[in-house]
């Protein structure tokens, strides 16, 4: 038996704990900051399991904010083809 030594935070994109900390060192303070630098949360789970782990690694900041969590549609993996069956599906909440 051999131990796997790497600690994967985002399993599907194979992003390790070390890489997340590097992104934080590089100035990331939000999930989006991590995402832009590492592509973590952009895989199959769409952040459902890994976002929470990353959140806890981010530098502490008082209030939970929308920026820090950066939730955008789609919240589930949906087929792009289903959305493109017509072209009128646009417009974000803001």
């Amino acid at each position: 038996m051999e131990a796997n030594t790497a600690k994967f935070i985002c399993r599907c994109q194979e992003i390790t704990e070390e890489e997340i900390y590097k992104a934080i060192e590089d100035g990331a303070t939000t999930i989006k900051g991590i995402k832009d630098r590492t592509e973590a949360t952009m895989g199959l789970c769409q952040g459902r399991t890994c976002r929470r782990l990353i959140e806890r690694m981010l530098p502490a900041s008082g209030e939970p904010s929308r920026e820090r969590y950066s939730c955008r549609p789609p919240v589930r993996t949906v087929k792009i083809g289903d959305l493109l069956k017509d072209e009128s599906s646009k417009g974000e909440f803001e």
């Binding site: 955008r72 549609p73 789609p74 919240v75 589930r76 949906v78 087929k79 289903d82 959305l83 069956k85 017509d86 599906s89 417009g91 974000e92 909440f93 803001e94």
Partner: peptide, 22 residues
């Protein structure tokens, strides 16, 4: 039926059996 987003004016983006609904 997956609700994948909420947009302005309480419009839900929904996919139901491969069909897209608002």
């Amino acid at each position: 039926t997956v609700v994948y987003g909420i947009y302005e004016g309480l419009a839900l983006g929904v996919v139901h059996q491969d069909n897209h609904y608002s």
